[in-house]
Amino acid sequence: MNCTEQALTFDCEGETLTAILSLPRQEASGIGVVVVVGGPQYRAGSHRQFVQLARALAAAGHTVLRFDCRGMGDSSGALRDFRDVTPDIAAAVSALQNSAPQVRQIVLWGLCDAATAALLYCGETRDPRVRGLCLFNPWVRSAASLAQTQVKHYYTQRLREPEFWKKLASGRVALSALSGLLGNIRLALAGGRGGGEAALAFQTRMARAWAQFDGPMLLFLSGSDYTAKEFIEYSTRDAEWQAALAKAPAIRHVEPDADHTLSQRNASAAGERCTLELLALLANPQPTQHPATPRPVGAAAGA
């Protein structure tokens, strides 16, 4: 293992959070990565995803902290929703810098609702220490966005299959299934109105945080993941997101066959590679990080 690891505990509003700090064996860069963990997960991640990521980044010279939010893993306190972990992230950023004083720039790395939490943190705090974002399959789900995704990517395909119509004619398609299809179509046609104003609030806050963030961003989308498909559908239909996407991420990558947690080794390797590219951009800023005419958010890198 080309890094050293140590356990940390630190305070967050009177509760004790537990973390693992991965330190390079070689001379460390001035960049630190805080892996924000969404629920229901703890600092190791599915199939040790975050362990492998932290070690790969530390082997490349970067300091990495992965931690348990309050109420998860070995951290104390009550479980929080992803919309309420801003204090946890702030405490983790401080803990990393206190443990590794050479770190001057922080990158937040998050998957699913942790990516959403990272964006919300930046929007709420404008923390000057955070200079980069790595957002993997961001979570934007509402009842309407889920319905739109299911209608487009599941039901449309099913309706093209002869077997579906045979089952329908023979009565083997249950009324509950047809009722579910019709309900999803109604929600999909209703668009954003289906989730209600309260359900849409965090997606709007995400879009505004995206537009306001002035550092490089990585957007990584898994081709075989409904959460990623929902993000594409939602962000290309919603007015706030359409405005936000005028600012394209510095790096956009679609991994065609990847699942939600990048469980295949080639997918996880792609995630590590893209993260390292983002860190290199932060270390050596380019004159223009955001192209004037961005590709659609769902377009594959290099297309």
Rank of each mutant, 00 (worst) to 15 (best):
Leu111Ser: 01
Ser76Leu: 12
Phe82Cys: 02
Val93Gln: 10
Thr149His: 02
Ser75Leu: 06
Gly171Asp: 01
Asp68Met: 08
Val64Asn: 01
Pro101Leu: 12
Gly110Asp: 01
Leu168His: 13
Ile89Ser: 03
Gly183Thr: 04
Asn184Thr: 02
Arg131Cys: 10
Val130Pro: 00
Arg126Asn: 14
Asp113Trp: 04
Ser145Trp: 01
Arg126Val: 06
Pro101Asp: 03
Ser94Tyr: 09
Thr149Asn: 04
Asp84His: 12
Leu111Cys: 08
Tyr121Thr: 09
Trp165Ser: 08
Trp139Tyr: 15
Leu119Gln: 11
Glu124Cys: 03
Cys112Ser: 15
Gly73His: 12
Leu146Pro: 00
Ala188Glu: 00
Val107Asn: 01
Ala144Ser: 13
Thr156Asp: 10
Arg172Phe: 13
Leu65Val: 11
Gly123Pro: 00
Ile185Pro: 00
Gly132Met: 10
Arg141Lys: 13
Ala144Gln: 05
Leu175Lys: 15
Ala144Cys: 07
Arg186Asp: 02
Ala177Leu: 14
Val64Phe: 02
Leu79Ser: 09
Phe164Asp: 01
Gln157Phe: 09
Leu119Trp: 08
Asn98Leu: 14
Pro87Cys: 06
Arg129Met: 10
Pro162Trp: 14
Gln102Cys: 14
Leu96Ala: 03
Ser76Val: 04
Gly110Val: 07
Leu181Val: 08
Ala58Leu: 08
Thr156Cys: 11
Thr63Glu: 02
Leu79Cys: 07
Ser75Ala: 10
Asp84Met: 09
Thr63His: 13
Leu119Ser: 05
Leu175Glu: 07
Gln97Ser: 10
Cys122Met: 12
Cys112Trp: 02
Leu159Lys: 12
His62Phe: 04
Leu159Thr: 06
Ala78Trp: 07
Gln102Pro: 01
Ser94Gln: 13
Asp84Arg: 15
Ala190Asp: 04
Asp84Leu: 11
Trp139Val: 03
Gly192His: 07
His153Asp: 04
Ser142Leu: 07
Ala90Leu: 08
Ala95Lys: 08
Val130Arg: 12
Gln150Glu: 06
Ala177Pro: 00
Gly171Cys: 10
Ser142Lys: 04
Ala60Arg: 12
Arg160Ser: 10
Leu189His: 06
His62Thr: 01
Arg70Ile: 07
Thr125Gly: 03
Cys112Asn: 04
Gly183Ser: 14
Gln157Asn: 08
Gly180Trp: 06
Asn98Phe: 10
Lys166Met: 11
Trp109Glu: 01
Pro128Ala: 14
Cys134Gln: 11
Ala114Thr: 06
Leu189Ala: 09
Thr63Leu: 08
Leu79Arg: 14
Ala114Asp: 01
Arg66Phe: 11
Gly77Arg: 11
Asp74Arg: 15
Gln150Thr: 05
Tyr154Ser: 07
Val107Glu: 00
Leu178Trp: 08
Tyr154Lys: 13
